[in-house]
Design a protein around this nucleic acid. Sequence first.
DNA 1: GATGAATGAGGTTTCATTCAT
DNA 2: TATGAATGAAACCTCATTCAT
Lengths: 200, 200, 200, 200
Amino acid sequence: MTPRPNVSEMRTRQIIEAATAVFAAKGFDVATMEDIADAAGINKATIYLYLKNKDALIRAIAEQLFAQELAGLQAAHDLPGAATERLTAYYESLIADEAEVLPLMPIFYEFCALGLRRDEVRAVISEFIDQVTGLLESIIQDGIDSGEFAPTEARQAARALDALLSGTLLHWVYAPEEVDVDAQLRYGIRLMFRGLANHP
Amino acid sequence: MTPRPNVSEMRTRQIIEAATAVFAAKGFDVATMEDIADAAGINKATIYLYLKNKDALIRAIAEQLFAQELAGLQAAHDLPGAATERLTAYYESLIADEAEVLPLMPIFYEFCALGLRRDEVRAVISEFIDQVTGLLESIIQDGIDSGEFAPTEARQAARALDALLSGTLLHWVYAPEEVDVDAQLRYGIRLMFRGLANHP
Amino acid sequence: MTPRPNVSEMRTRQIIEAATAVFAAKGFDVATMEDIADAAGINKATIYLYLKNKDALIRAIAEQLFAQELAGLQAAHDLPGAATERLTAYYESLIADEAEVLPLMPIFYEFCALGLRRDEVRAVISEFIDQVTGLLESIIQDGIDSGEFAPTEARQAARALDALLSGTLLHWVYAPEEVDVDAQLRYGIRLMFRGLANHP
Amino acid sequence: MTPRPNVSEMRTRQIIEAATAVFAAKGFDVATMEDIADAAGINKATIYLYLKNKDALIRAIAEQLFAQELAGLQAAHDLPGAATERLTAYYESLIADEAEVLPLMPIFYEFCALGLRRDEVRAVISEFIDQVTGLLESIIQDGIDSGEFAPTEARQAARALDALLSGTLLHWVYAPEEVDVDAQLRYGIRLMFRGLANHP
DNA sequence: GATGAATGAGGTTTCATTCAT
DNA sequence: TATGAATGAAACCTCATTCAT
């Protein structure tokens, strides 16, 4: 009913977008509210009209990033077809977003560090990991049920799979010239699939 | 007359040790030099007698951590016996150090974040990852040569293995109550071994 | 609507004024930014909104002082009349400002010391001395052209005159009770005039 | 009677010498006790065995410099001959020491600034100026008595002369390439002599 | 006499945050 | 809604000085 509830929402988005870029480039602590305001083309004080403080801004970014990430996995999960195909679709979507994912990695690691020290942040990350694990588990369970995979502890397998994916990202961002993400991910997953496979 | 050139060296160690704990607890930026001095039981200014500045302190910690980590892998690498056994020895040493490793994880992630923004830090991490990969590759290659593993791209396999290990750490630190590291790591590695195995 | 672009300019002036007094009283290095802020009745951090740092503050003061000083000489230079009268007007203006000039002497000497060590400062002082010399030279040349003074090297005479003036200030500030500036300056100038005069 | 009272004295001299160079190069406040110790090739703490503190060090330097300077003037004063010749001898000795005097100028100006703020320093400088003035006055009075100079206020003349000399130094140090000290000083003095001369 | 080690005190500068307009 | 101006709090680092050896 309100005429334009989106004006405020758009400003918030604009700020979060600018902040994401600035935080990625400088780090949460080094980046200043002024840096962010400049990047957003607004005044420093204006940020406080939309976000309580720097911490809230960081949290807002986290939520947005995790939501995006989850959406991708959820989409793969909802796909019809074989488990291996759905999982492959997931990691291919990861690779497809390469240009967007890479610059966000510093934020991701910083979050991981932050989460080990501040409980509110920890809760957000734990929840995220839990959901990712759950979706992967569900897909794997489908694979087991369909006979694609040998019977196994689906949740452990899900964690192993996610571990492989996120660990591969680390190698990728630190050796982008040597590591061909596509090939490396494909290789890792194939290994896992073979490990999980229903051998004759 | 007593051979005591280590007074200085011991102080440096003392400071680094205190700083490691403080940085782990608060983060590089939030932790202050005074926090560290207090933790070491010395005066703030004394730190500067042994380390040029906060950055140098951070660097010193990084080097020490990476060196320790590498030493563990190197030891496993130098072990006699089958590749699978040597790899297993490695991850078991990781688990054995649990009490020490866990509190250092925030530092590790913070480094990963830092390294993506500052080239000097990046170089240190890249080098570390490269050495880890190299050692794992060497073990895997031995496994291939001995017929334990099917012929494969040993370097890619090494990266996949390290990815699995470090990714599992992430799950562990964020769900320590649900995740049994030992079991989870064992499970992941078994999967990989089966994937790599020379099937009849 | 009111034309008030000078809010910022006035604050800057306010700060410079306070800083001038504090620097004169304590010296560039001993005076703290807090001293200056207190003297200006503002917060320490506010200074940095208007001047980049302590150095910039010092520079701003130098420029202002030299500009004022030059303005006085320029005014005397632009006067009509005989050279001796114009020069006399100059030193009289110096004496008239006694109350303002005296407390600034420490700053002047400090600048002279600083200028011998830092090239950017040196440039400012060199330029100042050069302009003073130039204006005095111009007046003296007029005196030569009009037959008031005997033909001579006007630039050297100008330097000698300025040397006498500034050297007299030194005696004055260090023996204010014994030295009657007015009489002393008048005496010195008369000596010079007689030395320069066109004797029959 | 003491075997070697000069060991201590020599160390003190060594320190003062080093400090003079360091202070001249960096300024009283910026130069650190460690800078000085390094320049003297000794330990920082050793300085305190010979000089109470930084202030005492600065004072010691002042005293030494002023004593040297006075000695030069005293020597000229004690010369036989005409007043103009004795005065000329003085400024020639100044010029002869050029290589030594020039690097000390920053210290001199810094002292002048310091003296206007700290009474103990002021006393030293006032005394110095007073003695210089007294010696010059004595020479000039001799010139008057001998008929070389016209009757005049010898003390005022002395101040004017010293003002000219020290003011010329300022021009010299700030325009060393344009100003030929020798010529400039000679010129200034000639002007004064003519002004003082007993015209027919 | 000489010094390596230590520290208390303090200065410059930065920044998240607030508020009047 | 938006912002220019202001500030309290704090962090890094330096240095004169002391003292045990």
